[in-house]
Design a binder for these strands. Structure first.
Lengths: 115, 115
DNA sequence: AGCCATACGTCCGTGACGGACGTATGCTCG
DNA sequence: CGAGCATACGTCCGTCACGGACGTATGGCT
């Protein structure tokens, strides 16, 4: 039956980080900016949430640190780059499916200002 | 300036309760069942979360108790019915817009198994 | 009689959240 | 040249959401 369909809803912070990383490997500070951008500034992550979530996600193997770094002339050695693991991809897909389903139901019930 | 565009993301529990109430007034226990149904069993709310959230939402005027009760023969006097306030409607709309936006971006980035 | 569904609620441990703070480098502007 | 801000990492800790356990009660079914 290919379980998947993660039965455990992700926390918003974890979800947003997974989402940001889906469009390419990023370092911490960059993730925070991407999240703000993706949500048009509606979601702003505090540093505690950011680095705390990253730590938990590493422990849960949703993400992993990568050695891939940009060209030395644009790099910053302080950075730590992260990428999604296969498990992270699956978790993201499951959660996105949930989001899409909510939106679909909302549309059915005319709760959305279409647009 | 028509503020709206709630800058504060709702907690998942609050969002799901608002969503459930958008399709009609309901009592506590009924809300929990609706949430489970709407999410196809993916979201199950513990009683602590349910009644705790309701209490906070009443305090924040997102919902209010209503006197409207079903016909006495199908009623249960233990129940407490709730309905969305105008503010609750606005909060729901704002959050749904956020959800829809996430889904739209996900679609753009090919993160969704279309369907 | 026993059990489950219904229906409300509290209590309290666990853990997410997020701002304050700490450290450091490099750039820009007055 | 010094102040200030952006970049970039991280910890610390108070607050609060979460959610299961428990408590109370009624009604129906077996």
């Amino acid at each position: 039956m290919e379980n998947d369909q993660a039965p455990a809803p992700l926390t918003p912070a974890v979800f947003h980080i997974l989402f940001a990383l889906a469009s390419g490997d990023k370092h911490g500070y960059e993730i925070a900016k991407q999240v703000a951008e993706d949500s048009q500034g509606r979601v702003r992550m505090g540093t505690g949430t950011l680095y705390g979530s990253i730590k938990r996600m590493l422990a849960d193997a949703l993400i992993e640190e990568t050695e891939q770094r940009p060209a030395p002339d644009v790099d910053d050695e302080r950075r730590r780059y992260y990428q999604l693991t296969e498990q992270g991809h699956r978790a993201l897909r499951g959660e996105l499916a949930r989001y899409a389903q909510v939106v679909a139901v909302a549309r059915d019930r005319d709760l959305l200002a279409s647009a």
